[in-house]
C-alpha cells in the first residue's frame, strides 16, 4: 500500500484555541452567566445539609436532619406558614382584579383608557420603600395597626399591576378573528368568552398568578412596613441574618426552588404535549 503524505494543515494550539474561542464566545459566555446565576442557589442548597447548631456560617458536617425536620427551628415554619397564607390570598384577589382590568383594557375601547394605563403603570414605577411607607402611614392615620390583613392588602396592591401587564399581553396576542369565528358559528357573547376567549387566555392568567405568588412570597420591603408583629419568611431571614440563619431556612429556600422549577417544567411539558397531540 502506497500512501501519499497529505500535509494536514495543523494550526498551532494557540491559534486553534483562539479560533474555537472566537466561534464559541457567546456560548462560553452563557455558561459563565448561568454559573454566576446559580452559585448562591447551590451554596444555599449545600448549606441546607450543614450539621450546624444555630448559625449556619461555616461548614460543620453533612447531615439530613434539617431536611427530615424542617420545623426544627420553629420560627421558620411559623414564618413560612404566614408567607404562604398571605401569598395565596393576595394571589387570588390580585389575579381576579387584574384579569378583569386586563380584559377591559385588551378587549374594549372606552373613555379613560390611557388614564387607566397610567394608574396601572405607576405602582410598578414606584419604589417599594415608597409603596410600603405610604401605605403604613395611611393605616396609622386611620388607626389601623399593621399586621396580617394590612400585609395582604399591600401585597394585592403591588401584584395587581403585574397581573394586568401579563394577562394583557396574552390577550393582545389573541387573534380577534377567533372570537369572530365563534360568533359566526352561533356562539353568543357569553359562550364565545367561555369557550374560546377564556381557554386561550388561561395560560396567561396562570402565569400571572404564579408571578403574583412569587412576588408576594419573596417580598420583604413592603411587608416589613405593614406586617407589624406578623413574621413572614423573608422577614425572618432578614432579622436573623445578624445572628445566623438556621439551616432549616436553607431547606425552605431550596424546597421553594425545586417546587417552582417542578411547576414550571410540568406546565411546559403539558403545553408541549398538548401542542403535539
Amino acid at each position: 500500500m502506497s500512501t501519499v503524505e497529505v500535509p494536514v494543515p495543523t494550526l498551532p494550539f494557540g491559534k486553534r484555541f483562539t479560533r474555537w474561542f472566537g466561534r464559541n464566545t457567546i456560548r462560553i459566555y452563557a455558561v459563565v452567566g448561568f454559573t454566576y446565576l446559580f452559585i448562591p442557589v447551590l451554596y444555599t442548597f449545600a448549606f441546607s445539609f450543614n450539621d450546624s447548631a444555630k448559625s449556619n456560617l461555616t461548614w460543620v458536617g453533612f447531615t439530613f436532619k434539617n431536611w427530615q425536620n424542617p420545623c426544627g427551628a420553629p420560627e421558620v415554619c411559623d414564618a413560612l406558614g404566614n408567607s404562604i397564607r398571605i401569598g395565596l390570598i393576595a394571589t387570588t384577589v390580585a389575579t381576579i382584579l387584574g384579569t378583569m382590568i386586563a380584559f377591559a383594557l385588551g378587549r374594549h375601547r372606552f373613555r379613560g383608557r390611557s388614564a387607566t394605563n397610567t394608574l396601572i403603570f405607576l405602582p410598578m414605577a414606584t419604589p417599594e420603600v415608597v409603596l410600603g411607607a405610604s401605605l403604613l402611614a395611611m393605616f396609622l392615620n386611620f388607626g389601623i395597626n399593621p399586621g396580617f390583613w394590612p400585609t395582604v392588602i399591600a401585597h394585592i396592591m403591588f401584584c395587581i399591576s403585574f397581573v394586568v401587564v401579563t394577562v394583557k399581553a396574552r390577550i393582545a396576542s389573541l387573534d380577534p378573528r377567533l372570537e369572530q369565528a365563534a360568533m359566526d358559528l352561533y356562539a353568543n357573547e357569553r359562550e364565545t368568552f367561555r369557550r374560546i376567549t377564556l381557554p386561550l387566555v388561561a395560560p396567561g392568567i396562570a402565569g400571572a398568578a404564579l408571578l403574583a405568588f412569587s412576588l408576594s412570597f419573596d417580598d420583604f420591603i413592603i411587608t416589613n412596613f405593614n406586617s407589624g408583629t406578623i413574621n413572614t419568611f423573608p422577614k425572618f431571614v432578614y432579622v436573623s441574618a445578624g445572628r445566623g440563619i438556621p439551616a432549616q431556612a436553607n431547606v425552605v429556600g431550596s424546597s421553594m426552588f425545586f417546587l417552582a422549577l417542578f411547576i414550571v417544567l410540568t406546565g411546559e411539558l403539558i403545553g408541549r404535549k398538548r401542542r403535539k397531540r
Partner: peptide, 20 residues
C-alpha cells in the same frame, strides 16, 4: 342581527381555527 343570529357562515382568511 348579531353574527350568531344570522344564517350566514364564514371561511376566514387564515382560517381562524380554534387552536385549543
Amino acid at each position: 342581527m348579531k353574527p350568531y343570529q344570522r344564517p350566514v357562515n364564514t371561511v376566514f382568511q387564515n382560517y381562524a381555527l380554534f387552536p385549543h
